[in-house]
């Protein structure tokens, strides 16, 4: 594979960091993604996130269930272990997930404890496109006043996330990826405006 594991993952990490620190910032990793030369059952940007963040010290879960090809690929490339959704440090919810399945994943994900809120799950969620004009309005740390997040969440997803994040600092962080090599993050601190949810 023509991915430079040193410099490309550093590049992708900085994009994720920038998006996590400034929710609503959409990063483009299409340049690196175009050099992936292996057949994948997920978006290239999703796989780059896995290469950047996963190793044998953390665990992951792939949704929907039965995507054994992707599970094998991620295990082989990162040495990370596939575990149940409620134990996983990273949950990869691919495009094939229904709204219901993605919302369920959020509900079942680890949220950490009040003493160790960092022991929570990060969900990598695939959506068709991070270029929606409608989108969602975010407020919170990292955002000067309001930020436009270019994807409109369903009411079900919104409620599942609200429920999960209601007792800060416990909660889950989202990395959203799209099919054109874009990614953006929604940390647990970001507040979504319900009026903007469809």
């Amino acid at each position: 594979m023509a991915i430079d594991i040193v410099h490309d993952t550093q590049f992708v990490f900085r994009k994720i960091l920038d998006s996590m620190a400034r929710p609503g910032t959409v990063a483009n990793v299409a340049g690196v993604a175009s050099r992936i030369d292996t057949q994948l059952n997920c978006f290239h940007s999703t796989f780059l996130c896995a290469l950047t963040l996963l190793d044998s010290e953390v665990t992951f879960h792939v949704l929907p269930t039965g995507n054994s090809d992707l599970i094998d690929k991620i295990s082989q490339y990162t040495l990370s272990k596939h575990v149940s959704v409620s134990e996983a440090d990273f949950i990869i919810a691919s495009k094939e997930c229904s709204e219901q399945e993605a919302a369920d994943a959020i509900r079942q994900a680890k949220q950490g404890t009040l003493i160790d809120p960092n022991r929570s799950s990060t969900i990598i969620l695939e959506v068709e496109s991070l270029t929606e004009k409608e989108g969602t309005v975010l407020t919170g740390p990292g955002i000067k006043t309001k930020s436009h997040f270019p994807f409109a969440f369903s009411k079900e997803m919104f409620i599942a996330r609200e429920e999960k994040n209601k007792e800060f600092p416990m909660g889950i962080d989202l990395i959203i990826t799209d099919s054109s090599g874009r990614l953006a993050c929604i940390p647990r601190t970001a507040e979504m405006d319900l009026k903007e949810v469809h």
Binding site: I5, V6, T9, Q10, F13, I16, L17, M20, A21, T52, L53, L54, D55, E57, V58, P117, N118, S120, T122, P141, G142, P169, D173, P187, R188, T189
Partner: peptide, 19 residues
């Protein structure tokens, strides 16, 4: 080594998410 960087990078992301 890349393993050390990964662990620190994951820690940084959590730190940013919980200011």
């Amino acid at each position: 080594d890349e393993g050390s960087k990964k662990e620190i990078r994951r820690t940084i992301l959590k730190a940013v998410a919980i200011p």
